[in-house]
């Protein structure tokens, strides 16, 4: 229809140009050769992919995937009960919490990483607190380290998880939980066997979004992590910028995309209508 075409021309042109074309380019470049002075040499070769067939890359890929899944699990484990409790509050309180939560988005990933660096450093308050509580023997810097990376990532991803879960939990009919209570379920059991099954779809969506965002996170692992445990995102960034090896970066990106598609496929299967 003419009207549809008229409306969609602008978005179609821009989106195809800025999403589709770069993606196809990326694919093409992954089969090209690196050019130290420029970007890439237009030949067709599998060198970039062959360069990935080593333990190091496989290790980084698996590590990144595992970390993404685990951090996503932690984020959703915190975010789901949090969103549930928040949606039981009165409207005013909800707005306050939402604005507060969205404020944490106002810290760019750079400052996010930086602030965790300060907090978890030797002089930072947090380790002194741990020492005072007797959890650690004496205050030592927790960064660079895996814990710091995780804390920073959870912080960055939590608002997205909450926003994904919010519609379903806000619209959850209160009678459903009340019915469970009058049938004999304690509030905790009602949460487990009524609220969670009712929100299966959004739960999976929140998990997938968190995992994908973590997978693509560049700054936190770079700044807060040790070089041995640098994630795939960092390796890709390094290859492109410092290593001047764009085909390699492209090849790694394609592998990451494959991983993300698998994740998407599994989540679609998990939320299929029985």
């Amino acid at each position: 229809m003419l009207r549809v075409a008229a409306w969609l021309t602008w978005p179609a042109v821009v989106l195809c140009a800025t999403v589709l074309v770069p993606f196809l380019l990326l694919l093409r470049i992954s089969f090209a050769a690196p050019d130290p002075s420029g970007l890439w040499i237009p030949v067709v070769t599998l060198d970039a992919y062959r360069g990935l067939l080593n333990r190091e890359f496989a290790g980084a890929l698996l590590y990144s995937l595992a970390m993404a899944l685990l951090v996503a699990a932690v984020t959703v484990s915190i975010g789901f009960p949090f969103t549930y409790l928040m949606t039981r509050l009165n409207r005013r309180a909800q707005v306050v919490w939402l604005v507060f939560l969205l404020m944490s988005l106002s810290l760019s990933d750079v400052l996010n990483a930086f602030s965790w660096q300060v907090m978890l450093s030797k002089r930072g308050g947090f380790v002194s607190l741990l020492a005072a509580l007797g959890i650690v023997a004496r205050p030592e810097s927790l960064t660079p380290g895996d814990g710091a990376v995780w804390a920073s990532l959870v912080y960055g991803v939590l608002p997205f998880a909450v926003v994904t879960l919010y519609p379903a939990l806000s619209r959850l009919p209160p009678e459903i939980v009340e019915a469970a209570r009058t049938l004999g379920a304690s509030p905790g059991r009602a949460f487990r066997n009524v609220v969670i099954p009712m929100c299966r779809g959004p739960l999976v969506a929140a998990f997938v979004i968190s995992a994908v965002l973590v997978l693509g996170a560049y700054v936190s692992p770079l700044v807060l992590g040790r070089p041995q445990s640098w994630t795939l995102a960092v390796l890709i960034g390094n290859a492109a910028l410092a290593g001047h090896d764009v085909p390699r970066a492209a090849a790694m990106s394609v592998c990451m995309l494959v991983a993300v598609s698998l994740l998407g496929g599994v989540s679609a299967w998990a939320t299929r209508r029985r």
Partner: peptide, 8 residues
């Protein structure tokens, strides 16, 4: 309940 609240 008025809304029945059966578990879907």
């Amino acid at each position: 309940f008025q809304a029945l609240a059966l578990f879907p």
